[in-house]
Design a protein around this nucleic acid. Structure first.
Lengths: 119, 119
DNA sequence: ATGTCAATTCAAGGATTCTTGAATAGTTGA
DNA sequence: TCAACTATTCAAGAATCCTTGAATTGACAT
């Protein structure tokens, strides 16, 4: 991932509604969710939703596919992952403390309860 | 890290000049670099630099300390790390594919050469 | 063909962000 | 005190982004 693409992806992530979209769509996996249902779930107007979905898709963070009248949107896991990688590798030069601060709660083991520490 | 702080941090990262600052300052460690030297290195005007340094510090991604007439800026590794954690944990719900796409080049083993694959 | 439905596009405005030169504050040394 | 130096603050303008209602496109069913 080059710098301009990473910058576009970070800009796309830097908005409350678009983070809500990622948060909603990630658990849906590759099937994704129809735009109408997304709008209803988040309670936002259709043109506004289209605007943000388009921004995320342009940035490589979402994919879309048409099914009959509906358009299903799903997260592009590779796009998000390589954006994170860009920050860690290219910007932070794999700095050990950044990697540590980033990974200390990333892979909770079975039986562990995540989200109990103060960050 | 709560959502508003994470959003502020992502917004701060989503700018070319500010990514350049993170990239420049990360290798400098806790000592950091004086504002004047940063401005000279990146070739940007002083008020513009102050604007972006302030944005990054407000977002919790940089720290500053005064030494004589100079102000030294250094990266807040915990701030950056918890921002990344927020995206992975809170937004992407620790989605396995996102974690995989993010971590596949994050911790090169001794002797490995990082940065040879296409992302 | 016609009506309905899902989604996007358009246009206008409002709000936010960014850059620049000028001015200001604070510190050091003569 | 005064000049030099470092950095920030201020104000104005430019550029970009976001929201909203209206209009449009495309697909399906009758």
């Amino acid at each position: 991932m080059d710098r301009s693409k990473a910058l576009a992806a970070l800009s796309a992530l830097a908005h409350e509604t678009r983070l809500d979209l990622i948060r909603l769509l990630t658990p849906q996996g590759d099937e994704g969710m129809a735009a109408g249902l997304i709008a209803e779930t988040l309670g936002i107007a259709a043109p506004r939703l289209s605007f943000h979905l388009s921004a995320l898709e342009q940035a490589g963070l979402l994919r879309s596919r048409k099914v009959a009248r509906n358009v299903f949107y799903s997260v592009d896991t590779h796009g998000i992952g390589s954006t994170i990688s860009f920050v860690l590798n290219d910007c932070c030069c794999d700095h050990p403390e950044v990697l540590a601060a980033c990974s200390h709660r990333r892979t909770p083991r079975q039986g562990e309860v995540a989200g109990t520490e103060k960050t």
